[in-house]
Amino acid sequence: MADKITLEVARYDPERHTEPTFEKYEVPFRKDWVILDALNYIKDRLDGSLSYRWSCRTGICGSCGMMVDGEPKLTCATFLSSYAPGPVRVEALRNFPIVRDLVIEMTDFMVKLKKVKPWIVRENEKPISQGEYLQTPEQLENYKQFSMCINCLLCYAACPVYGLDNLFTGPAAIALAQRYNLDSRDVGARERREILSDHEGIWGCTFVGECTEVCPKHVDPAGAIQQYKVDAAIDWFKSFLLPRGAK
């Protein structure tokens, strides 16, 4: 087994470059290393100017998403050994502007996320003295899968529709909207529908399904979007047949 592997890392400094260029680094090839370990090695030993985001190293924080050999991956959960003998190409997540090197600008997602109100909406909060909002295991199961999303944005990097037209609300934001719509404690579905049934909300999706393929937490955003389309279509027919009754 070779004891070194080459990483081709995208470097980009908006003040000096017009587009990213690749720089090669030789790092130790260790079976127990993930791509993030190799990047940390570069940063610590070879080139301190390399910029990238990471935090937890355990696939929970969602900060270390990057393109690894052209595929969106969490670099903390992607082993170097899967790419032996190399070289391995590491780039910033596709479909987003780059701040520097491997760091993307994610304001677009943050704005969209907030728009779909990813929190529990209630008409009336009951006083604390009346206790918690109880939920059965079945009610929890309804939305639990969609609550696993860690906002890592791999699904946005994988989505060709978002790549062509970033007006599209996108996979994670819709899956998270659905996470709250399906929560028995929530009454915000109608407010969210105003945003999501817009042409660029759910209808932009052409069910490519890549979002679900790349999701490291098995959230199935593509499923959430199709499910939401059915709900929105039923709602549309109701409002068409009973304009007042559906409100």
Binding site: R193, W203, A233, F237
Partner: peptide
């Protein structure tokens, strides 16, 4: 819903 869009109708027919 503000302006009535016919996308849901066409999507249902598509589906």
């Amino acid at each position: 819903m503000g302006k009535r869009s016919f996308v849901p109708l066409f999507w249902t027919l598509f589906s």
